[in-house]
Design a protein around this nucleic acid. Structure first.
Lengths: 252, 252
DNA sequence: AGTTTTAATTGACGCAGATCAAGAAAAAAC
DNA sequence: GTTTTTTCTTGATCTGCGTCAATTAAAACT
């Protein structure tokens, strides 16, 4: 049973500092009174620990969740029994957006490490978005962003090459860290190799071997879950499929 | 240059009948006056032809588009020059939702056949969703649905098995046809084998071979783009990975 | 009509990456 | 602390599917 105290985190890890929920969900021009109104809506903001569920597939949808610190993975269950990782989420990102339509969570969300997650009841948020000007638009933006990101992942998985996928994965993380003001080249991968494999459609062993290869080739320095990107240019080249010659000029 | 007359469609094709835009975008309980108000917002509803663009990557985002008849594909350009298909859209579905956040289209949308597409200017829709009760919620639902569907696709692509992917692809189409009241087992695949391959992360040749195999095994009847699903049970079994034994009970 | 272009199918071959297996290193449990 | 469990890595083998190539069929032109 996890207690409710945030435990200190291994100093070797690259920390993910706390993000303001308001700055994430609200439009920038929000006034003080409206900010207050908004803060009153964020009911819980509780710490979770590695392995804790934020929600599970099948749960009734009531809230979306904003990540303040730590990291979360989402996955769907495949009938064969193994899970398919569908996303990794970092501070400043939202989860649960896919459950709005049918009112039921289709995926499960689990903490990858000690994290702070804020619950935002959706019906309150909906009401509020009718009264606070700009919040409605911001909600549309956030939902659209999620669609965009999943499309990006689809594009990444479209590449049949394993190197390309892992390079793309790392560069995506790098970009997302930058957006939140963290180091872009030096970070802690809180998920297991198994999770990365599932996410990228690769076997664990392939992921492991690729990390070793990238390390040996001087593209990055990796020690367990700690990664330092060394040669961004070559990583980008890998991602872009530098040696790819299978050129169908146009589809359709 | 496409003219503005809707051409008659090959009788061999399974037709995709026209859908009401209002029924797609609006909540059911909408009154007559609001319906009128909504209809006034749908500026254009023009026919497009095979190969016509609805929008292209880089275009400024102004509208979302509802498909009334026909089918559309969306894709992103990969640096290597080839395109990555990210979605196929049928009557009653919306495209352009991924462009709201940044105000720019990241993907291109192209007609797969003669189609009727309605343009819905987004700022008008936004205004309207402040005045028509329930429309805001409906918009959230539609955006959420798109996220859900992309997550589904991610799960599908997670399977390394090619059979599983094609079976999943066909079953997904079947389900979507059912939702719109069309035949669930007998349909016309307006996209090329190449497009299907790109979408599923497979080579054209593999897609072609799989169709032949499925046909020979009595799972379906296929003649060029016309497909009849014969044995749904076995297709579902394939999709569920019936012979899959790689069972990691839990991720994380 | 005929000609060109594009799409689809099928076969042969090879390789990237899955799978199997075994050992090492952490992490978790006690 | 020790033991157990899980995760990660590395090697050896095998195979599914990508790639290349050639044929056929169907659109899309003129």
């Amino acid at each position: 049973m996890p207690n409710n105290k945030i435990v200190s985190i291994d100093s070797k890890k690259v920390r993910c500092e706390v993000c303001s929920v308001a700055s994430l969900v609200l439009p920038e021009f929000l006034g003080g009174k409206e900010l207050e109104l908004f803060e009153s809506v964020v009911t819980h903001c509780c710490p979770v620990h590695r392995g804790d569920y934020i929600f599970q597939a099948g749960d009734t949808f009531r809230s979306i969740f904003a990540i303040k610190s730590g990291s979360i993975k989402t996955y769907t269950r495949k009938k064969a029994g193994n899970n398919q990782i569908t996303g990794f989420y970092l501070p400043g990102e939202l989860i649960g957006l896919d459950a709005i339509e049918e009112g039921v969570h289709h995926s499960s969300a689990k903490a990858l490490e000690t994290a702070a997650v804020c619950e935002i009841p959706f019906d309150h948020l909906e009401e509020l978005s009718s009264t606070i000007p700009g919040l409605q638009r911001q909600m549309y933006r956030l939902l659209s962003k999620e669609i965009f990101q999943e499309t990006n992942l689809l594009t990444l998985l479209g590449s049949k090459n394993a190197e390309e996928r892992l390079a793309g994965f790392l560069l995506d993380f790098s970009n997302r860290f930058i957006k939140r003001g963290f180091s872009a080249t030096d970070f802690y991968l809180s998920m297991s190799r198994n999770d990365i494999g599932s996410y990228l459609g690769l076997a664990v062993e392939t992921v492991s071997r690729l990390f070793t290869r990238f390390h040996d080739d001087g593209l990055l320095h990796v020690e367990r879950k700690h990664v330092q990107l060394k040669d961004m240019d070559r990583l980008k080249l890998l991602f872009n499929g530098g040696d790819n010659q299978s050129d169908q000029k146009q589809h359709g």
